[in-house]
Simulated assay, not measured.
Amino acid sequence: MLDALTSVSLRGTAATAGPSAAGTASTRAVAEGDFSNILADISGQAISSLKGAETTAISGIQGKASVQQVVQTIMAAEETLQTALAVRDKVVAAYQEISRLAI
């Protein structure tokens, strides 16, 4: 998830730096993507993080994963969920602000 957010910040850097300092192909690919694709990618990464934490927790219950590994993945999933909720709150607030604009 943080990789996608870093890519978003690199998008502005590549646009202002010019073609000589354009960077890698991944930066160019992100620059060509639109906002909905970026949000879809970030939400997909968040879902995979939560599913990975669930899988690790089940492995921990079965005795296949250590307690430390379970706690680390659960904490990472919790952080991902909190980030996703914060982004959702900002999107909803922006939508409400736009809906209040006089036409």
Rank of each mutant, 00 (worst) to 15 (best):
A93N: 14
A15F: 03
A94P: 14
A14H: 14
S26N: 08
T27D: 09
A86W: 04
Q45E: 10
S36A: 12
L2T: 07
A14F: 08
V67N: 07
S49A: 03
A53E: 08
E32I: 03
Q82W: 06
V91T: 08
A40C: 00
A4P: 11
G23L: 06
G44I: 00
G12N: 10
A57C: 14
S48C: 03
T6M: 08
P19V: 01
K64L: 05
I74A: 12
Q68N: 07
I58G: 05
D3Y: 01
T24C: 08
E97P: 14
A40F: 06
A102M: 11
S26K: 01
G33F: 02
M75S: 15
S7L: 13
I38F: 02
S36E: 15
L5R: 10
S20P: 02
L10I: 03
A21S: 15
A77T: 07
L81G: 10
A53M: 06
A14S: 15
I42H: 03
G44N: 03
T16Q: 03
S49K: 10
F35I: 05
K64G: 05
K51R: 14
L50G: 15
E54C: 05
T6G: 02
S9E: 06
S26P: 01
Q72F: 00
Q96T: 01
E97G: 07
S26F: 02
T13P: 08
S43I: 02
Q68P: 02
T80F: 04
G60I: 07
L81C: 08
Q45M: 04
T83P: 11
Q72A: 04
S43A: 05
F35W: 04
T13W: 07
Q82M: 05
Q96W: 01
V87H: 13
Q68R: 00
A77C: 06
A102N: 09
T83M: 15
A15Q: 13
R88K: 11
A4S: 02
Q72R: 04
A86H: 12
S99Q: 08
K51Q: 12
V91S: 10
L5Q: 10
T73R: 13
L39R: 01
S66P: 09
T24V: 04
V8K: 04
